[in-house]
Design a binder for these strands. Sequence first.
DNA 1: TTGACAACAGAACGAACGTTCTTTATATTG
DNA 2: CAATATAAAGAACGTTCGTTCTGTTGTCAA
Lengths: 197, 197
Amino acid sequence: MTDFNAKDTEYLSKLQDYYADWKSIPSYARLCDIFGIASKSWVKTILTRLGDADFIERTPDGAWIPTRQFFARPLAESTVQAGMPVSVTATQGDFFVIDEMLIDTPSKTTLITVKGDSMIDAGIHDGDIAVIEKRMTANIGDIVVAIVDDDFTLKTLDRENGAFILRPANPAFPIIRPQGTLEIFGVLTGLVRKYRR
Amino acid sequence: MTDFNAKDTEYLSKLQDYYADWKSIPSYARLCDIFGIASKSWVKTILTRLGDADFIERTPDGAWIPTRQFFARPLAESTVQAGMPVSVTATQGDFFVIDEMLIDTPSKTTLITVKGDSMIDAGIHDGDIAVIEKRMTANIGDIVVAIVDDDFTLKTLDRENGAFILRPANPAFPIIRPQGTLEIFGVLTGLVRKYRR
DNA sequence: TTGACAACAGAACGAACGTTCTTTATATTG
DNA sequence: CAATATAAAGAACGTTCGTTCTGTTGTCAA
């Protein structure tokens, strides 16, 4: 295996430019045009090298896809002054970084606007947007969206004397002790808040 | 051209889930497996329909890529009555992408992991991710990231006797009264929290 | 009960694809 | 200057891809 050098960096940026436009990595033949190269085999060598350097990787189907590092900006925001204990995570990824972080299974994920202050001690405020993964089972301690009296409610799932209860995070609200079955709509997997500007 | 129906929504979900895993749209043959369908020609019909509905589009090379709408999530209203538990249908309600909601100016936005409990009464917890728009000016009442003693700190900007102060949202922490200039790194425009699952 | 249409299945095919192997030109290095 | 590594070209090939066309099945309204 050879080293990653300046030429490869040039090819990488051409690939990044194409990807920025089309959000996909094209065929070797197409990459010949993009790289200004005449042979597919050499394109493959380059991509393999970019893969070794962890800028791209392959799906189980063999298709090339970008990795996190592919989106990392060269030295864009090193404006950070010396000595900072707080980790400033570089804003890698062009788009959809937050979505990607919060949503594992798009088809099972719903966003629900939080109403009321019943979970305020858990740092969940009125107007926040809850990221909910829809499923019917949850673990004790999970914050769940349950359906109680035809109403959605966001509470912590707990157990009391063998029965499930819904515990608010606000002493001003009562613990909900559902009679009969407790229908769970989904589990809280993320929270999003937007500050007016 | 035929209508976009419930079956198509189901196929879209499966495609979204695959894409969330592999960040690419595979070949028709592979999509046969994913969709549970035996003929490539029918897969093409479906993708064409998803294209007509503007969930995916083609590159000049003919490859399918997702559009913005592909990533949008449904936003349910908390006042929605139950009864229709799994109404994932694209019929009504707002759809949006979390990143686009929180980030207006990507080049000026950075994500910072919050450390400590000094803003806990504002619902900002240790480990939360703050969405910061970098700029040097802020208004009274804004939550800002300021640089104090070569240290990043997240506090509410306030004024006291004509001087700027940084007010924590936790009585256990002191108000910061910077002598001399107060350097503002950016303003808090969003907050993201991820719950372990 | 028939006819139309939507939802698939399946075959057929040429073009495109990725891979491998061989060859050649250009630097590098000792 | 010779040995060697890198950068690239090019051909050859079996596989896979997308496309098109033709069939089959189920549904539903007239």
